[in-house]
Design a protein around this nucleic acid. Sequence first.
DNA 1: CTGGATCCGCAGAGATACTG
DNA 2: CAGTATCTCTGCGGATCCAG
Lengths: 126, 126
Amino acid sequence: MSRSHIDVSALASEACPVSEVLDHVSGKWSIGILVAAAQGPVRFTELERSIKGISRRMLTLKLRKLERDGLLVRTVHPVVPPKVEYTLTEMARELHESLLGLTDWAKRHGTTVAAAQAAYDREHNR
Amino acid sequence: MSRSHIDVSALASEACPVSEVLDHVSGKWSIGILVAAAQGPVRFTELERSIKGISRRMLTLKLRKLERDGLLVRTVHPVVPPKVEYTLTEMARELHESLLGLTDWAKRHGTTVAAAQAAYDREHNR
DNA sequence: CTGGATCCGCAGAGATACTG
DNA sequence: CAGTATCTCTGCGGATCCAG
C-alpha cells in the first residue's frame, strides 16, 4: 500500500496506549516528579522544594495521579511529624529510562530549536 | 552528599530543555502529528483524516507550532487546488526515534497501568 | 484544499487559608 | 510535615463561519 494510507487512527484513538502514556507524562509537572523521584524515595516537601514553581495543590494532584497509574508508591510512616515517601515502581523506572532518550534529544537540539523559533518569528512578525 | 539534595531545579526551570521538549511533545496532538508525518511527506487533509478526532483549528495550530520549532517543514505547491506537504526535519526524525521508546513502554505496560487504576479506584471510591 | 478569525466552555493550574 | 478546600484565572480545544 502506498503511503497515502497512513493509519494513525490506532494511535490517536483508544486502541493504542501511546496517547495515554503522554497523558501521564504530559502536563507541566509529571515528568519533573518522575525524574525527581527516580533518585530514590523522596518526601513530599523535598519534591516541593526540588521542583521550583510547583504549587502544593498541583504536587498533590500529580502525585495522586501517578500513584493511581501505578507509577508511584506512597509509603506513610506512622510517626510524628508525619513522614511520607514516594518511590518509583519498576514500571516507572523503565519509563524513566525511555524519558532519558527525550532529555538527551533535548540537550542535543535545544539551541537548534530556539534558533528555529527565532528565525520563524523574524520571518513572520516584523 | 546524601540524596536529600536532589536538584531538579535545573530541570523545572529554564536551564534544562527537558520541560520544553515536553512542551513540544505534550498536548493532545503533537505526538500524533509527528508520528503521522514520520512516514513521509503528508498533506493537510491526510493528517486531518489520519488523526481521528482532531479539529481543523487544532491541526493548524499544532502544525504551525511544530514548524516554528523547526520540527516540520511546510512546502507549498503553487497549484490549484492548493497542495501543502509537511515533512519531518532530521532533528524531528531523531525525536521520533526516542518517542519509539515511549510507545514501546506504553505497549508493554498499558494493561498494567489500567489495572493499577482500577485497583486504586476500587480501594478509594467504590 | 488549506487555512484564518471568532466565540465559548471546560479543565488545568495558581494563590491562599485551613487541618490532622 | 503532608496534605485538603475554595476561589479564580488562563489557555486549550471544539464548533462554526469565512477566505485565498
